[in-house]
Design a protein around this nucleic acid. Structure first.
Lengths: 348, 348
DNA sequence: GTGAAAGCGCTAACAG
DNA sequence: CTGTTAGCGCTTTCAC
């Protein structure tokens, strides 16, 4: 079919192994021969065959697997993932790695896919783009000791057993809650995503720590969770604003949810930030374009991806390296969705 | 290393070729043997090696290449791409195909990557997620007659030479402009993306057709283009609203741009739709959450991806099939960003 | 129905 | 420095 190493060898009048050595840029090939071979490759338009290469190379593929949560609908809707992938992608390309994308839409499918990637030698390493509790896939990867990096953090599994890239989500959530507290808010509610995701748990944790430290009582009805990003935000508002003591401030786990929240609030005629302060997380590209522009925590998504890829590749190069825990700093981006609480309690 | 076909053969007490036949589910293997082999595979935890398979299989890889525009920053920011990929992904998985993602960040890098995918037998086919004029990659693919599908439409290349999935963007743009016209607007501006993308050209074309048909004069200063989605939208507004005769309605090429537009308008205190009507394209998930909720053309992005993948795989199965042109229907989603023009011209 | 053997394109000892 | 040889794991004639 295509032009092979043999064709090149024949044309350059050398043996196939010599051609192979030229490809690998082996130092023990004379300059003259190298040139000769390169000319032949050029002339024939030679490109190495990846599959053959992998096969002969102890099955290294130079490709990285990217695993997203059962991508069906939920995941890819969130700009978080594209942005992480952008970070991964940029590093991967610099290092000559390709990217193989998971497509599974249910947990089972995903798991199957991962085992196929791994056992079938389709990828050299895997980046898991989410952290959830009791994740079969992570357990499998760890047990198998397959090179991988986790975005987020392991939950049941001891931290030393896996390399992960995370934000200090607890601290960040505590910080934003403290901020709201300092603005004079006391009735602060929490709107989280899926409770199976570690990030939701961490945000909740930070939120509660702040309230406790301020001597405030935690109220169960101030904590709502919704899986669907946009509708979730809207439903959360209905629940919260129909309480007898609606909150005056909100900690929302995700910017896209905040879009839903803002939309619903606008429909209800509730003014942000005058009547309700809102703060959320991620600072995706579009966050600055909400009305009002949202105050949010920038978690440096791109960096997360970049670093994740970096550490994954590092591990591929030297598997004996210990696992690493990398925390990407976050930073509050103040815009216009938070305001000092104006004394007048919303309580009856 | 891993468990191979030979290990299974040994355990099942058959030859490797028999095992291979069982994997392929060959009809000429006795039921008894099949069972025996399957048990052995199960016991050993056998997984076929993709690379070896590809190599022996005339280099079919069962993976599809996905090529996005120099993904650097611009592309992946737009929810369009994740959504297309979601459509592709869902079909690919159903058919047992994997996805290989491009990572190139410049045109050169991308081109290199594609040639490597193709010549190196890394993928069986390619989905090009964008259409731009004079695209080296598309030319290469067509000339090489490599199985591929284009999202959008070919520009210089004759339509019969490539399978493509598109919306009727010209018609859609004409339709929205006509709609604005019917609402009484006469000063309608066009805000487009990068002029190298065919979709921008098509939108412009439809816009101009409508104006001409209405006997209105085309004004050059009513046509602005910006590459960056969100900043672009904002800059466009500055240009347009500082004209001596600012428009009363806008046709914007992309929903995310519209977010930028709305943000800037809000900052300037221009009321939408009271003072300015806006209509745009795509209807990405978040579009419904703008303030006001934007009127836009739903182009069924997911379907585009799904169909693209379908036709690509079809072509893989039977390369002799003629190229196809598939038009995905669009539909106007009326929300709250358009309003009847209220007589009082904004002109001095 | 099943086995033996060759070969996909490349790499990596091992010789020289 | 370079050629020869074996083999990566699988598929596929060709025999039996």
């Amino acid at each position: 079919m295509a032009v092979t190493i043999k064709d090149v060898a024949r044309l350059a009048d050398v043996s196939p192994s010599t051609v192979s050595r030229v490809i690998a840029n082996s130092p023990r090939i004379s300059h003259r021969t190298k040139e000769k071979v390169k000319v032949a490759m050029e002339e024939l338009g030679y490109h190495p065959n990846y599959n053959a290469r992998s096969l002969a190379n102890h099955n290294t593929t130079n490709t990285l697997g990217i695993v997203m949560p059962n991508s069906a609908k939920k995941a890819f809707q969130n700009p978080f993932f594209p942005e992480v992938i952008r970070g991964i992608s940029s590093k991967a390309r610099k290092e000559g790695y390709g990217l193989y994308l998971s497509t599974g839409q249910t947990e089972e499918e995903l798991f199957d896919e991962v085992t196929h990637m791994v056992e079938g030698s389709r990828v050299d390493g895997i980046a898991l783009l989410y952290s959830k509790i009791n994740d079969k896939i992570l357990h499998y990867l760890v047990e198998k000791n397959f090179p991988c990096v986790l975005i987020g953090r392991p939950y049941e599994i001891p931290e030393e057993q896996v390399t992960f890239i995370n934000n200090d989500n607890i601290k960040a959530a505590k910080m934003v809650t403290d901020y709201l507290l300092l603005l004079g808010h006391k009735d602060i509610a929490f709107v989280g995503g899926n409770e199976e995701f570690v990030v939701t748990l961490d945000h909740l944790n930070g939120y509660e720590q702040a309230l406790k430290q301020a001597g405030l009582q935690l109220k169960d009805h101030y904590k709502v969770y919704h899986e669907e990003l946009e509708e979730g935000g809207q439903e959360a508002i209905i629940e919260l604003m129909s309480l007898s003591e609606p909150p005056t401030a909100l900690v929302v786990s995700d910017d896209i949810m905040t879009f839903g929240v803002l939309r619903m609030l606008s429909d209800m005629g509730v003014k942000v930030p005058e009547e309700l302060s809102i703060i959320s997380f991620n600072n995706v590209m579009i966050s600055k374009l909400s009305s009002p522009p949202m105050t949010t925590v920038d978690i440096h998504i791109y960096d997360i991806g970049h670093k994740a890829c970096h550490h994954l590749i590092e591990k591929l190069k030297d598997p004996s390296l210990p696992n690493k825990k990398v925390i990407i700093p976050h930073r509050l981006v103040k815009r216009e969705s938070c305001k000092k609480h104006n004394g007048a309690s919303t309580r009856l």
